[in-house]
Structures are given as structure tokens and as C-alpha cells.
Design a protein around this nucleic acid. Sequence first.
DNA 1: CACTAAAAGTCAGTATACTGACGATTTGGG
DNA 2: CCCAAATCGTCAGTATACTGACTTTTAGTG
Lengths: 197, 197
Amino acid sequence: MSDKPAADSVDDAAPLPPGAAGTAPVLEDSTAEKSVSEDPSGWATEWAAGLPGRPGFLIRRLHQIHVALFAEECGGFNVTPVQYSIMSAAALQPGLDQNELAVAVGVDRTTLANVAARLEARGLVRRERTPKDRRLKRVFLTPEGQALLESMARPAARAHQRTIEALSGAERQAFLDSLTRLVLAGNAYGRAPLRMG
Amino acid sequence: MSDKPAADSVDDAAPLPPGAAGTAPVLEDSTAEKSVSEDPSGWATEWAAGLPGRPGFLIRRLHQIHVALFAEECGGFNVTPVQYSIMSAAALQPGLDQNELAVAVGVDRTTLANVAARLEARGLVRRERTPKDRRLKRVFLTPEGQALLESMARPAARAHQRTIEALSGAERQAFLDSLTRLVLAGNAYGRAPLRMG
DNA sequence: CACTAAAAGTCAGTATACTGACGATTTGGG
DNA sequence: CCCAAATCGTCAGTATACTGACTTTTAGTG
């Protein structure tokens, strides 16, 4: 990670001509690709026709990039993005049960339980059964967890900001708007929807 | 997955008012969030101030959604998005070694090796050492793998298309442009960069 | 009250993604 | 030629993400 280009040089670069890759972008099923990217304006045809022309591919890549940036900014805390999200939710709404936490964060209940258990093992959260409903486990942040959360606020925010800083202000906003639209539209797919009401 | 809203109703819905959640969006460190979303126009303040206001959070959610859509469209093939990408790359450039494949697809070399090994176990790819460089393993698609790839082309494309279909044509293009810009800008972060040249 | 259905959390299993380290092989420089 | 550095693939380990199934508990209905 120490060999990444300086932020300035990356930001200044016009969209790189990706066709120059020693490993050429992968071409395939151009007919299907055209239906996805009906207007290839602004990017090389080869790029659009290959793997990078697939939305899912780009989304996976950006997610990888974000996770790497988060690790760089928050590495010293040994907290992952999902752990941070779960702790954030637990801090704001102490006592949510695991399932409520899962839908607040958009994480599968199995994943939530696994992450919470590991956070509990680190003394960052506490999980309690309640006499009112013995099926539930309610989650509380410990003082140690709270302190960690607070000390991470800036680095975490920096990671998020760096993920999208290559866009200008208006583009950034438009991008986030679209991203939000897509997330809202597809929210019910999969096993980890966000609660909408 | 059978309880997802009809595509029409989701598409027609104006951006949902997310503040209505029984589990309220999580609020935190508003000062840092403001620096990320400097212009909150078009989305509720509560949404912007909470977890969904974090770019990385939305990116994770959209990735989850995409993977779920891919599973829905391609479930019958028992092929994941990453497997499909690797097979696509191997089909277009037969004989790339594993590392070349990893940088063509943007996958960590360890992940690539693991996925390739499982694909090989299924008879979909063949991995060969070469006398020219005994460190390498070159990857070839088998006839069975080729056939599977071809039969998956349309469903796979549909999954990608559905991931972004909530946006209009121009918005979609702008979104993909921005996504590409961000991927290119952050490409070197992490251990799985795409080869640029 | 009795019974069915639903919910919560857990379990075992599979897949992707990353980390640092390692042995074998190749490359590059003196 | 020799040796150090680099590269490739693998290894063991950790984390997230999902699947279907299961036991316990609660909710709902007749």
C-alpha cells in the first residue's frame, strides 16, 4: 500500500486510456454489453466492452478500494468498516436487539451475530438477554467501545471522503444521489435489507 | 427474495423518505459528515447524517444488492460474479498466468488462486505449469467452461443491468462515468489493483 | 386453552477478500 | 559466475457475506 500513486497525480490525471494495459481489457458478448452501456460517451470503447464495462465489476472494485482506504486510515484501531457501522448503530440506539441492529446496518443476521460476538470478545460491546422476550439479545456499547468509536470518528470520515474525492463537488453529489437511489431501489434484494419502515 | 417489491413500484417511487424507519437512521459525528456531503440537496438530512450518508456504506449495500441480483439471474449456473469475471478473462486471453489473471480482474492473487482451483475442480478451467517459467500456472478455459460461459452471457448481463436500472439513461451514464473515475483514481489502493500498463 | 405460525439467534457450510510469510524459481547486477 | 532481489503460487489465519436448517421462544388465531 506504500506504492500507491500520490493523491495529486491521480486526481489530475484525465481518465487514463485503459487500452494501454499490457493485459488488455477483457472483451466479451458485446451485444449484451451494449444494452447496459447504451451511451459510451466519455470512456474508451475497449474499456466499456470489457469487464470494467460491467457495473457490478466497478462496484466491487470501488468497494475493495474503500475497504483498503478504511484499513489505511483506521488500521491502528483494528476495526473494519462493518464493525464500525455496527458500533455506530449501537452507540446511537443502545439496546437494539441483534436483528434490529442487522436491519439498521444492512447486514445479514448471521453476519451481525458473528461480528457482535467478536466485538463482545474484545470488550467493545455487551450482549444481554432480556426477561421480556427470551429470544432476543440486546446490544450495548461498553465505555471502552464508546471511547474507541469517538477516537475513530475523524479517520473513519476521512476514509469515506477519500473514497469519493476524485469527483468534483457537484459530481460527487450527483454520484451519491444516484448511489442512494440505487440502494433504495434494490434494498429488498438479498438477505440483509435496511429497515425502511 | 420472493418478497421483493415489484420493479415498477420501486422505480416509480420518488426517493423514499427514509426518516420513517422504525429503526431510525444512525446519527453520529455530524461535523465530519458535513465535510463529505457538502450539498445535501435532494436527500433527507437524517439520511445524510447517518450511516447511509457514508459513501462506503452505500457502496457496500449496492455491492450486496448486485451480488443478490447476480445470484437470482445466474443461480442455476452456480457461478458467482467473481468466478464469472475470471472465466471471462480466461476465455478472452487463454493462457494468462494466475497473476496476470488477478490483475486483469482486480482480484487478490490468493483469492484468484483459490477461485481458479475450485473452478478447476469443477472441470471449468485447466491450470498448467510451463517449462519456460516454472513459477507460473497458466489458466485455460475447458470446453465445458466455455459452454457455461456462453450460456450465462444473457443472465449475467441482465444482473448487471438490473443493478443500475433505477437510474434514467443520462443519470446511469453519469453514474457509470463517476464510478469509473473513482475506480481509476483509487486503483492502486489495496492488494488487488487492475493492470493499467 | 391448544395449536400453528413466526421470530430470534445459532449452526455448519461455502465463497470472497485480505494479511503476512514461505519455498521455489527467475531476474538482474557486479 | 555468483549472489541478492524479485516474482509466483501457496499457506495459515482472519473477516465479511450468504445459504438453508434448527431449537427455543413468542405471537396470533380459533
